[in-house]
Design a protein around this nucleic acid. Structure first.
Length: 1099
RNA sequence: GGGCCAAUAGCUCAAUCAGGUUGAGCGCUCGGCUGAUAACCGGGAGGUUCGCGGUUCAAAUCCGUGUUGGCCCA
């Protein structure tokens, strides 16, 4: 809507607005207004004395632009931030960005043309970190511009960034707290290693694809008995590290003498396999005969020794205490051979079982996937490429039974698609398995919406969660603040922890910059120091004659965001906000964060301070394509929010995101629905636009004339719409408090479309059009103003632009500088009247049925009907219709409304019967035809068999026995009466409309036909509403002309005709009114004439 | 392979928790209104409630199973 001075001063109330809601025009104006009026800053300031509400923003990762998912997320956050502000809270709205991590390193490497870690080392760590920092910052700016463009109000000038010293320090502090509670340790773990990135990949960063791999059956010769164990694998390269063979203790295994007689490779082998797998193994090994010579359980095989299949090639193969033996293991299934080759230096399950058994985790593979010298003959080969060599060696030694291929799901690095290798390396852990009970207890302290997300999914996950591996062997991350004793006293700076025995009491964990400055050997300025790897790796600590050096690793990025609840308030460098606000009142993310940020925060909060860092969680779904597929930027399957804005606007997009999808569910984006949202907002726009010219013309002043001032003059519909408004407010507040935003906004849209637009405004239009000002008119103005003002506030958090535009036009200079400073409207109980709401609901049901009946009778609404008869089935409905008969008469343009209660019969009604011949036939035989004719011809006063029997018996000159099955009753209304059923909450009935014409009705009907056409001609001339005209009317039918002239006063008042007579050079048109030719001429009078002609000439 | 969520009119969703005649908006179509008018309002058609099986007097709803999609995990 239009105003030049965006600060509110001098802006004109009820100023003319665009005819159509055009988001493309409204939104830029609102942005300008916000900027000029400092709308955001003033809104924040307005609530600065309110109760604190600590919202914590889950930081989006800074690689790539905002997609529909992030858009939805931020718009939801904006909604709840705005809502809580309107509820009076002083809301923390600091946005955050997750800026560390491998994905950014990968992108920077691409940009710089790097292929692996060595390129980074050559480029220089510090320089590489600076590149990453610059890249992440670039991405941040792009993201932030997008978020602002969506109309999201957060503290964009001061986002928290996980790369800032204050934030990194927050991570150090949390980690050091966990350490002090004894929850940090170093340990070996089987990890997913990306050989290209040379780092561990979190399980959730692994993507699975189907790949073709070797499928080999190999026999391991037993050491102290005849025969071999048969194992199967898809990773022959791991045979190098084979340490034991696993069996299922309960499973039956057989020893067989298997023969190949037909082929070239003749001979007999004694093989041990699970009995259930025997056929498969023999077939794979191309044996054609066999004899079972032994049958044992897996348990009985435990302790059997075998020879390492690559003992000659790998001199260092596992051969210590307990190696090369059979053990039981949970992970064995009666599949393939029923015996599992186990390498604790690689596989996760193998590793865990190996730990239990006290076996060495032999891992002769480096971080780049290349065998170390320990791998003997294979040293220097990339493991996957060594598969063929291993297979060839096994074949040469006669150990290979079968060499096939199979398709399996294989993990790949999510960034570079390199196949993962499982290796065992030294990693740092937060041992959350030690605090499982506390974690499970702390879950209870947060309320989730929807609840099942916590009680089903989240709890299961927490119960099964392993220790948290927080270390990554990369560069772009928060350095792990652990300094370990160095073997020599000189500072090497390479983070080598050799020389330290793993005792956590002997390490130093630094918790903040001040402590670092104090304890470091080098001079450190805590204000200036950058905590990244390039800097801190140079720092050593020397205490009691021992020099400590930092471990080389950085934190997994999940640790970064896990400290967001205190990182947001810059704890520990600032303490006041933390003490006042923590923990978070609300966090709000998509369901992938259940095992992501919801979890990492709980884990970190519990490890550091044994408390849940958040109290309430709103979980939403994923944004999918219209057909339900997931969006994927890399595959080009996506809907770009920018395009949606371009096409339909910000508010319609927001409204779609906030109104269509239920809490916790995935959203399927829909262009059609977004367009529909624009149409709904157009109704809001028109509802607001409709009364303004009248208010302006009559000089209505909402400050002077409030609803309270016009209480006595309120009409029924005014009271009704005000009551409905209160109910909608109560409903919306309930839904918003339950985080059911889609229900809340649906209730509001319903109110605007159904109640205000379709009913209230329809009813109130006549009052607005009255020429003279009146108390009733002022009452309508005050009512509608109140409705619009509060509706605008209710819409504000959902569609901030259009709400702002309407609000500023409504309030002019008198309101807040922005609608977003308004309080959330609370229902005023004094205005609530549930009984009235019920009555009007009945009236509307009756109106609907009545309109339908009119349509059936083909009588336009413009023509009055003599009477409407409402036959109801409940006293409550009868009372409602009787009480509101005037309104019913008005809505249906009826002269009279009659109500028939449940006990009354309408004397004019008759019933007929439709005969069912399949029943009549058997019952009456030859007479069936006559009975049918009599039945069909019968008209009875009540729908009962008795009445029918009497009538039919008379017609047939003899009694007949009728049953319920034989007939179906039909209502027969009098001629020119149409009846339609209706139903309301407290009962229903039938509305009969009597459309019989009388001269009186014709007179009014024709008069209204003429009025309508004159109005159209006034509009042709673009006349002002109050402009007066001279009217020239010639009707080519004397009877009709006389009928119309009976309503001369009405006619002249309606069309503002202050003069009658010949119109020579005015606007003339000839109309066909119900078959009668009517010639109309009009011309504006006096001052209106000049105005009209000047308007005409300007077009 | 496992867990959680979803599947209802051409489209987007209600009704499912707590079993009782499947409903709304859009679209389509027919009509009305005519100073909100490129707006607004009414009627109508449109359903194997994803398939199969079970429990029940009664199933969209509860149970089992399969299919498809989403997310998480392996």
């Amino acid at each position: 809507m239009s105003h030049d001075d965006a600060t509110g001063e001098g802006r004109e109330r009820f100023a003319p607005v665009d005819d159509q809601y055009d988001p493309g025009a409204v939104e830029p104006r609102v942005f300008d207004h916000w900027e000029a009026a400092d709308a955001y800053e003033r809104t924040v300031e307005h609530r600065s004395d309110g109760e604190d509400f600590f919202f914590v923003d889950g930081p989006p990762y800074t690689s790539g632009a905002a997609h529909m998912g992030t858009t939805w997320n931020k718009v939801l956050k904006d909604l709840y931030i705005r809502y809580h502000r309107m509820q009076g809270y002083d809301v923390t709205d600091r946005p955050g960005y997750d800026m560390h991590g491998l994905p950014i390193e990968t992108k920077v490497e691409e940009r710089l043309g790097f292929e692996n870690k060595k390129d980074i080392e050559e480029f220089g760590e510090q320089a590489f970190i600076e590149e990453c920092k610059a890249f992440a910052q670039e991405q941040l700016v792009g993201l932030q511009e997008d978020f602002q463009d969506f109309g999201v109000w957060m503290d964009w000038d001061d986002p928290y960034r996980t790369v800032s010293p204050e934030y990194m320090e927050a991570a150090w502090w949390g980690f050091s707290q966990a350490h002090e509670r004894g929850l940090v340790k170093q340990g070996k773990r089987s990890i997913n290693q990306c050989p290209r990135c040379e780092t561990a990949i979190a399980n959730n960063e692994v993507e699975y694809h189907d790949v073709t791999k070797p499928s080999v059956y190999v026999r391991f010769p037993l050491a102290d008995r005849e025969g071999s164990l048969v194992v199967w694998t898809t990773t022959p390269w791991t045979f190098v590290a084979n340490t034991f063979v696993a069996v299922d203790g309960d499973l039956t295994y057989v020893g067989v003498d298997a023969e190949r007689s037909a082929s070239a490779e003749t001979g007999t082998d004694r093989l041990y396999v699970a009995e259930a797998c025997l056929e498969e193994v023999l077939e794979a090994g191309r044996y054609d005969d066999y004899e079972v010579v032994e049958r044992v359980t897996g348990a009985e095989m435990v302790g059997w020794d075998y020879d390492h299949p690559l003992a000659e090639e790998v001199a260092d193969h596992p051969q210590g205490e307990g190696a090369g033996q059979v053990y039981t293991a949970e992970y064995v299934e009666a599949d393939r051979t029923g015996l599992v080759h186990s390498a604790p230096g690689h596989g996760e399950e193998d590793f865990e079982r190996g730990q239990e058994l006290g076996l060495e985790a032999f891992c002769p593979v480096d971080s780049d996937g290349v065998y170390t010298d320990q791998a003997g003959a294979y040293a220097g080969s990339f493991v996957r490429e060594a598969n063929d060599d291993v297979i060839a060696d096994l074949d040469r030694k006669g150990l290979l039974l079968a060499d096939e291929e199979t398709t399996v799901r294989e993990g790949q690095c999510w960034r570079c698609n390199t196949d993962i290798v499982r290796v065992v390396t030294d990693q740092w852990f937060i041992t959350i398995t030690d605090i499982k009970d506390e974690l499970l207890a702390n879950i209870e302290d947060a309320q989730w919406h929807p609840e099942w997300a916590r009680d089903n999914r989240f709890r299961d996950f927490v119960e099964d969660a392993p220790d948290w591996n927080v270390s990554r062997q990369r560069y772009w991350g928060i350095p792990i603040p652990i300094w370990t004793p160095s073997p020599d006293s000189s500072a090497t700076g390479d983070g080598d922890a050799a020389g330290w025995d793993g005792d956590m009491d002997e390490v130093i964990v630094i918790s903040d910059r001040a402590e670092l400055a104090e304890r470091a050997d080098q001079a450190v300025d805590p204000e200036e120091v950058d905590l990244h790897k390039g800097t801190v790796d140079e720092l050593t600590i020397t205490e009691d004659g021992t020099t400590y050096t930092r471990v080389g690793d950085v934190f997994d990025v999940w640790l970064d965001s896990s400290v967001a609840s205190w990182g947001t308030v810059a704890y520990p460098s600032e303490t006041a906000d933390y003490e006042q606000l923590w923990p978070a009142d609300l966090i709000l993310e998509a369901h992938d964060q259940t095992r992501g940020w919801f979890w990492s925060q709980l884990g970190m909060g519990t490890a550091a301070v044994d408390q849940s860092p958040y109290e309430e969680v709103l979980m939403h779904g994923y944004a999918n394509m219209p057909d339900g597929r997931g969006m994927s930027k890399s595959k080009g399957i996506l809907v770009d929010p920018g395009e949606v804005i371009e096409e339909y606007g910000r508010d319609p997009m927001r409204l779609f995101l906030l109104s269509v999808t239920a809490q916790g569910e995935d959203m399927n984006f829909s262009w059609e629905e977004t367009e529909e949202m624009q149409r709904r907002l157009n109704i809001l726009w028109n509802v607001a636009r409709f009364p303004m010219p009248y208010m302006r013309a009559d000089g209505f002043d909402p400050e002077e004339t409030t609803v309270a001032d016009v209480r006595a003059d309120l009409e029924l519909v005014d009271e009704w719409v005000l009551s409905r408004l209160q109910s909608v407010e109560a409903t919306m507040t309930d839904h918003m408090e339950a985080f059911e935003n889609h229900r809340a906004v649906e209730a509001l849209l319903d109110f605007v479309v159904e109640d205000v637009s379709r009913f209230y405004i329809q009813v109130v239009r006549e009052r607005m059009w009255e020429a003279d000002d009146s108390a009733g008119k002022q009452a309508a103005y005050a009512t509608l103003y109140r409705v619009l003002e509060e509706v605008t506030a209710l819409f504000a958090p959902f569609v901030p632009f259009v709400a702002e535009a309407v609000y500023t036009t409504l309030t002019g200079e008198t309101g807040h500088p922005t609608v977003h400073m308004c309080d959330w409207p609370e229902p005023d109980e004094r205005l609530r009247d549930p009984e009235l709401e019920g009555e009007v609901e009945v009236v509307r049901a009756v109106e609907e049925a009545g309109s339908n009946a009119r349509q059936q009778a083909e009588r336009k609404l413009r023509w009055p009907v003599a009477r409407v008869v409402v036959d109801v089935d409940s006293e409550a409905v009868a009372a409602a219709v009787e009480a509101r008969a005037d309104l019913v008469a008005d809505r249906l343009n009826a002269r009279r409304v009659e109500v028939l209660g449940p006990a009354e019969e309408w004397g004019e009604l008759r019933y007929s019967a439709v005969a069912d011949m399949s029943e009549l036939g058997p019952a009456f035989g030859d007479d069936a035809g006559r009975v049918m004719e009599a039945l069909n011809a019968a008209r009875v006063g009540e729908p009962t068999l008795d009445a029918l029997r009497t009538t039919v018996s008379e017609a047939l000159d003899g009694g007949v026995e009728l049953t319920e099955e034989m007939v179906e009753f039909r209502r027969e209304t009098p001629p020119e009466v149409a009846g339609v059923e209706f139903a309301a909450e407290e009962g229903g009935g039938v509305v009969y409309v009597d459309t019989a014409l009388t001269e009186d009705i014709e007179s009014e009907g024709y008069a209204r036909e003429v009025v309508r056409r004159v109005q159209e001609m006034r509009k042709d001339l673009d006349l002002a509403i109050e402009a007066e005209i001279r009217l020239d009317l010639a009707i080519d039918d004397d009877r009709v002309a006389e009928l119309v002239e009976r309503h001369t006063d009405y006619l002249e008042e309606e069309v503002r005709a202050s003069d009658r007579g010949a119109v020579e050079d005015g606007h003339r048109r000839t109309w066909d009114v119900e078959g009668v030719e009517v010639e109309i001429g009009i011309e504006p009078r006096g001052a209106d004439r000049r105005e009209a002609s000047s308007q005409a000439s300007s077009e």
